[in-house]
Computed example of a mutant assay.
Amino acid sequence: MKRRTFIGAMASGALTPWLAASAQPASRKKLVGMVSSFSARQIEPLRAALLEKLRDLGWREGDNLEFDLRLAEPTPSALSAASAALVARAPDLLIAQGNPTLDAMRPHSGAIPVVFLLVADPVELGLVVSLSHPGGSLTGFTNFETAVGGKWVDLLKDADTTIERIVLIANPDNSTSAPLARRIERDGRESGVSVQTVDVRDADGIERAIRGAAGSPRAGLMTLPDSLPILHQDLIIRLTSELRIPSIHPFRTFAANGALMSYGLDFPELYRQAASYADQILRGRSPADLPVQAPTKFELVINLNTAKLLGIEIPPALLASADETIE
């Protein structure tokens, strides 16, 4: 505001309304685009959490905000096409969910600010300069450090002490799958458990991997933090239940819907945090000034109904450490 205009506002008694208006989002509708490979049913509660927090911060869909969500199969080509279609609309901000989505989005996004979610090792992969000072157009929230793989192994072994082998389902199109799988294989050896990584890209591959696990006595199953198992969550839960295979997953929805255990992040809260970054960027702050945040809280969920179905008696110490039990 020019100095003479500001003085005029003071003289007319309009300073207070001017300050109130300046604290609100600009009148032009902002366009926020997001790409996810979750299903419509799976993404809905997360979309709702994001938009609810944005409303709390003054952004109302249909008023001063347009939110364009594109769902795509978890393949590089599909994610790239969805990203290109969004970028063609010249959004004010992009939201990328997971490493494969961010990898597919980056060639198209250019200087458009991007808030990422569930992205592992952004510094090691060269996505940002550092966690505290990203230094470019990207910032956001990481998901799991590789050390968490050992925790998954230990939790599954604690729940069922008879387990000698774990089949680990991995998506080779996710750049973080290989290093995380190697760490889990090493942690398994140290815990006296053989971990076999099986690369899959579709439902057929997932089914073959699970049936392969069922062919071995004292076997368990584990999935990595990736959109592919989320997309085929119902299949994984159905088969592990039918074949009596104890399993652990990084997403709460697995345990909530019938898998034995989950140990992972509070997803709705993560999306609310992403909304706070979106708010700051839409108001003019640079992503380069917003530090990449690592998770600080993980939740252990145990489904006792499934434990009973599998004939597993969860040890009292493990039950006591659970954040939630499902009966």
Rank of each mutant, 00 (worst) to 15 (best):
L168K: 04
M10N: 05
S191P: 00
L65T: 08
S177H: 02
I248W: 02
F254N: 04
M1D: 14
Q233L: 14
R89N: 08
L125V: 03
M10Y: 00
D279N: 15
T223F: 08
N303G: 13
L127E: 01
L300D: 09
S39G: 10
S39C: 01
A85F: 01
E185P: 04
K308F: 05
P250D: 14
L180R: 11
I163K: 03
A203K: 13
G140K: 00
K53R: 15
R189F: 04
T176P: 03
R3H: 13
I245T: 07
L86I: 06
V200G: 10
L69S: 13
D92N: 13
N174T: 10
L54I: 09
P291L: 02
E269L: 12
L310F: 00
S80Q: 09
I312N: 06
R60W: 05
A81I: 04
V148L: 08
L93A: 13
G126M: 11
I7A: 02
R60G: 09
P246A: 15
A288F: 05
L282W: 05
L102D: 07
L168N: 10
P179L: 03
A213P: 02
P225Q: 06
G212C: 09
S247Y: 02
T161H: 10
P100T: 14
A120F: 02
L57S: 11
R3V: 15
A49F: 08
E61L: 09
D199A: 15
P291K: 02
E44V: 10
R244K: 12
E185H: 06
L309D: 06
G62A: 08
S77I: 12
S194G: 07
R208C: 07
R183F: 11
A209Q: 09
R165V: 07
P17R: 03
A120N: 14
S177I: 07
K297N: 11
P74D: 06
A274L: 03
L180V: 06
R182S: 14
L265I: 14
F67Y: 13
R201T: 15
S321F: 01
I184P: 12
L69A: 12
A203V: 15
L94E: 06
V32K: 08
I112A: 14
G110Q: 01
L65H: 07
T146A: 08
W18M: 14
L260C: 14
P268C: 09
N171S: 15
A14C: 06
A259V: 05
L290H: 01
T142E: 02
T296P: 03
V153C: 11
L94M: 07
P107G: 11
N143R: 07
F6W: 13
D92S: 08
D154S: 11
R55P: 03
A322L: 07
A78R: 03
D63A: 10
A84P: 02
S227W: 05
H249D: 04
E324D: 12
L156W: 04
A219C: 11
A274D: 12
R285T: 13
A170L: 08
P287A: 12
I112L: 09
A111W: 00
P91L: 09
W18L: 14
F267E: 06
